[in-house]
């Protein structure tokens, strides 16, 4: 049913665009209402019939993926949820995808947050999105959540030399000493990879400046789209890779599905949200082309006359 809807709406939109392009060769202007109709269809159709486009991961996203993919099994990865509910729609999909990837590869994950609001989001996403796909994963053995501690960059300053000093216990008051994951982990320098997901301050940038650089630990970042351009100067010297906005998440999800087909069944919010975006972008670009065709045709006609 959904597939039929997708096919019909795609035919409608793309066919319509081609018709308009042909008409534009005769230098005929398009009525604005037709443009509006196309935009409406391009956005509404993927909402009604979920439509995903094949994303191909760009190098910045792929480097994060490859990093996690190529770590030896049993490596320890730290995931920091540095965001609040307002930012969540954009960055939550990345957090889910990366957690799943780490679990799939058999890495151990330490979850934490530099934002007070992050801890609630963290436990919510663990129970709602991440763990249901991995019933075999065991708390304290395969993953642990050490939660939030106040102090912003100060927290980072401490955990780069000693995690326990800042986080004596995990969120359930289990002392870190007794948690198997921490057997060989004393400070952030012992971690195999750090991923910070957020967009404000403190966030990815602080992880790079206060932990990644001084501790020589590989750091990857996932950020909101508006922040992404500000992170590029650090790539690839100081950060492994960047996931920017919904698009970054969608690219990561598609790479995940490509390499590990079993994830195709799971919810992929990044790819889903890119549906309306991609179609609308295509429609807008098509109208730029059509507009120019009309323009040049019209000018040639004027010259002839």
């Amino acid at each position: 049913m959904d597939n039929i809807g997708v096919i019909i709406s795609l035919i409608l939109i793309l066919g319509g665009l081609v018709t308009l392009l042909i008409r534009s060769l005769q230098a005929r202007e398009v009525d604005r209402r037709i443009i509006f109709l196309f935009i409406f269809l391009a956005v509404a159709a993927p909402i009604l019939f979920p439509m995903t486009f094949k994303e191909k991961a760009t190098q910045v996203v792929k480097s994060v993926f490859d990093k996690i993919e190529n770590l030896p099994e049993g490596s320890t990865v730290l995931l920091s949820f540095d965001f609040d509910p307002a930012m969540a729609p954009e960055v939550q999909p990345m957090a889910n995808a990366i957690s799943r990837h780490c679990f799939e590869k058999g890495h151990k994950i330490i979850f934490m947050s530099l934002w007070a609001t992050g801890q609630a989001l963290l436990s919510h996403s663990l129970s709602e999105f991440i763990l249901p796909g991995f019933p075999e994963k065991e708390n304290l053995v395969d993953y642990v959540s050490i939660g939030y501690k106040a102090g912003n960059e100060g927290v980072l300053n401490v955990i780069i030399t000693d995690i326990q000093k800042m986080f004596p216990t995990d969120v359930n008051s289990v002392p870190l000493d007794s948690i198997p994951i921490f057997d060989n982990i004393e400070s952030c320098k012992d971690l195999d990879f750090i991923m910070s997901i957020g967009g404000g301050k403190p966030g990815p940038k602080e992880w790079v400046l206060f932990v990644g650089d001084p501790g020589d630990v590989p750091v990857g970042v996932g950020v909101a789209a508006v922040v992404a351009p500000q992170m590029y100067p650090y790539y690839p010297g100081q950060i492994v890779g960047i996931l920017g906005g919904v698009k970054g998440a969608a690219e990561y999800e598609s790479e995940l599905i490509r390499v590990h087909p079993r994830f195709a069944e799971m919810d992929t919010p990044g790819l889903r949200m890119m549906g309306p975006q991609t179609l609308a972008h295509v429609v807008i670009m098509a109208f730029i082309v059509i507009g120019n065709v009309v323009f040049f045709r019209g000018r040639r006609r004027e010259k002839k006359e």
Binding site: I39, F40, V43, I47, V246, K247, P276, Q277, A280, H281
Partner: peptide, 11 residues
């Protein structure tokens, strides 16, 4: 991209 998101919200 941001503008399209607004319309997604309304629809």
């Amino acid at each position: 991209m941001g503008r399209i998101s607004l319309l997604v919200g309304r629809i």
